[in-house]
Design a protein around this nucleic acid. Structure first.
Length: 379
DNA sequence: CCGATTTGACCGCC
DNA sequence: GGCGGTCAAATCGG
């Protein structure tokens, strides 16, 4: 375990060095790429060790502090969650993510400085990636939630659809449901639903009785390709339109980055809780503190001390991470899914060719347009 | 042209 | 019968 920690510390150190060297390296993409590779490599190694540790001595690594809560029928069996490991992993993810944030911001800034003359009007907005603040998720709070309440699961079965026209699946095949609360981005278009590491395709929207806002239904974009059964429902809270309740249903069988699928369809292995939670962990990420609106490039919130204190502080923050595909998109110069980067970092092979590629490509590839065509206005 | 979104209709469940 | 979830044709948009 100590080895892992020191690996991570090393990674952070490298990242910091990279950070401080960025001004010098800005116009040396090769060196930059190399440095990034080093950082990634260290983190990757640490992560692999983590998994080895996990695999050998834990059967369940529920991130105990994570802000999701499963349906009672499946997971309210409270084993002692291995919080250290889980939070360490979270921390690892977030630190990588934030490191890459900095790199990306710097690169972008430099790029703009070089390429564009009117860069003064551009605002690199990492804060805009998600929330405007600490939207902490309560783990209970039985407000009316998607699905009516938090305990709606009942195995009622009375035969399959007898219709000859459409065949519908039974309402509930005991599929997993996970509810999380996420905050809408407070800048730009706050009406777009929160994003996560997966790409979703909207297949329906419905007015829900007693709710001011309609509920949107999404399914995994790769549903056809991978028979991925994952779905999600997104609904804004009545009393806090900046908050969304997102219910994830079903497990992703398309284990990959949210962008183009690049792996062959995985074998139909049963997905364990661990896997699932891990995926969920990608959805959730820690936001750096947002003091004023400046780019914290020269600040040291990346410092290990800070990150550790951040994680020790408990209270995970859930954000509506992801690119707010603002239609107006003027004030936001840089938007990209942070979680995507973490995802890419951990999933991409360590090809030394161009490790920064995903940073620049995952931006627009990630998501087309969210249904934002002037409807769904706030009353 | 193709994939995503919209939206009214359909259908299962309570 | 009402509600919520899904389907699928129409539409949009890159």
């Amino acid at each position: 375990m100590e080895e892992i920690v020191s690996l991570i510390l090393l990674g952070c150190k490298l990242a910091r060095e990279l950070e401080s060297n960025l001004p010098n390296l800005a116009d040396q993409p090769n060196l930059l790429s190399k440095s990034c590779d080093e950082v990634i490599k260290v983190f990757r190694t640490a992560k692999e060790r983590l998994y080895m540790t996990r695999g050998s001595n834990s059967t369940s690594a529920h991130p105990g502090h994570m802000t999701l809560f499963h349906e009672p029928q499946e997971s309210l069996v409270h084993e002692q969650p291995r919080i250290e490991l889980a939070s360490l992993e979270q921390w690892l993810r977030s630190s990588c993510t934030q490191a890459m944030d900095i790199i990306q911001m710097q690169l972008q800034a430099d790029h703009q400085r070089i390429d564009m003359q009117d860069s003064s009007s551009k605002v690199i907005n990492v804060a805009g990636l998600g929330t405007g603040g600490s939207d902490r998720v309560e783990s209970s709070a039985p407000s009316r939630s998607i699905g009516g309440e938090l305990h709606p699961l009942h195995a009622s079965d009375s035969g399959i659809a007898s219709s000859s026209q459409r065949q519908r699946r039974r309402k509930d095949d005991g599929e997993r449901r996970t509810v999380i609360k996420v905050a809408a981005p407070r800048i730009g278009n706050t009406e777009i639903p929160p994003e996560d590491v997966f790409t979703w395709r909207k297949y329906g929207q419905k007015e829900i009785l007693g709710s001011r806002f309609p509920r949107s239904y999404y399914r995994c974009t790769h549903q056809k390709l991978y028979q991925c059964p994952a779905k999600k429902q997104v609904q804004r809270f009545d009393d806090d339109p900046y908050m969304y309740e997102v219910m994830y249903r079903g497990d992703h069988t398309c284990h990959m980055s949210s962008t183009a699928p690049s792996l062959p369809p995985p074998p139909p292995v049963d997905i364990t809780d661990n896997d699932h939670d891990e995926i969920m962990a990608q959805i959730i990420n820690v936001q750096p503190p947002q003091e004023s609106s400046s780019v914290p490039s020269s600040r040291s919130w990346l410092s290990t001390e800070y990150l550790i204190s951040l994680r020790a502080g408990g209270g995970m923050v859930v954000s509506g991470a992801g690119p707010s595909t603002t239609r107006s998109g003027k004030e936001v110069a840089l938007e990209y899914p942070v979680t995507d980067m973490a995802d890419a970092m951990f999933n991409s092979g360590s090809s030394s060719s161009n490790s920064m590629d995903f940073l620049f490509h995952s931006n627009e590839l990630n998501k087309g347009q969210q249904g934002d065509k002037g409807k769904n206005t706030v009353d």
